[in-house]
Amino acid sequence: MVTPAIFLSDVCKNYGPKQIIHKISFDVKPGEIVGFLGPNGAGKTTTMKMIAGASTATSGIVEVSGFDMSTEHHEASKQIGYLPEHPPLYDVLEVSGYLKFIANAKKIPRQTIKKELDRVINACQLEQVSKTEIYKLSKGYRQRLGLAQALLGDPEVLLLDEPTAGLDPGQIHETREVIKQIGTNHAVLLSTHILTEVTLICDRVAIINQGCLLAVDTPSSLQKASRETNRVNLLASGNINQLKAELENLENVHSVMSHKTQHDLTNITCNVSTEDAIETQIAKITTGISKLYRIERQQPTLENVFLKYIKKGDSL
């Protein structure tokens, strides 16, 4: 069995009498990218900080590469590359000077420092600004420099708190490619608000809200598990009211919504709770009453899944 690179078991965090994180348990294996999803204030950054060692858990176990963060923090920190929510930069330093400081602090051997700096500068496309003072950098460059310092030393575990925030679409694409590449042989925990990012690069998703972990699974399993949000969309014309009434009577159809489009056509959305081919039944009824132009089954997006879990979490 593969030892998880990140392992959390019943982790709680209190600030004074207030409990912020409630018994969170999950793991990230080497070569896996896990997306950490949750609304603002859900506890993503607090959890990331506990894994990175910037904060300690009130109770529970946090392990990184097999090292317990409460007792072997120093050993564990050698395996971690951490990009906090706000890139931790020293404005008065030059880009190369800053990276050299991080390389020295990470105890990268002197003879390999130059090679390592070139590698991260190249990966994060910082060649043009390597001699520029950090305070002169744009938001995108600052974010990429933050990522570069996390990549220095090729750590086993990467903790990235919103790594693509502030980047332009081209840079976002490049950064995702870099993360994907790293994720093939490193453990990556990636906090983000961008759901497409999770779908595109993450192997698994952890959804958190109000300090509680609501679900951990692959994006496709989560989508499958929330089939009650499945929808069948159809475009029809004719006696819509009768059609709606007939469709509502169908078993496994929760509700039917409609709105008129141009040329007397109507978009009808049926919320269904079955994976069976209910489209055939819907199509049969529709063609009997009106004219059917199009029918398609709409799978739940990750956004639907996320919203569903967040709503559920609110009522916890």
Binding site: K49, A52, G53, A54, H74, S77, K78, I80, Y82, P84, H86, P88, L89, Y90, D91, I102, A105, K106, K107, Q149
Partner: peptide
């Protein structure tokens, strides 16, 4: 203030 303290305490430095 510069939010760099989190970086310092997570580096392998005592």
């Amino acid at each position: 203030a510069g939010r760099t303290m989190d970086l310092l305490v997570t580096l392998p430095i005592f």
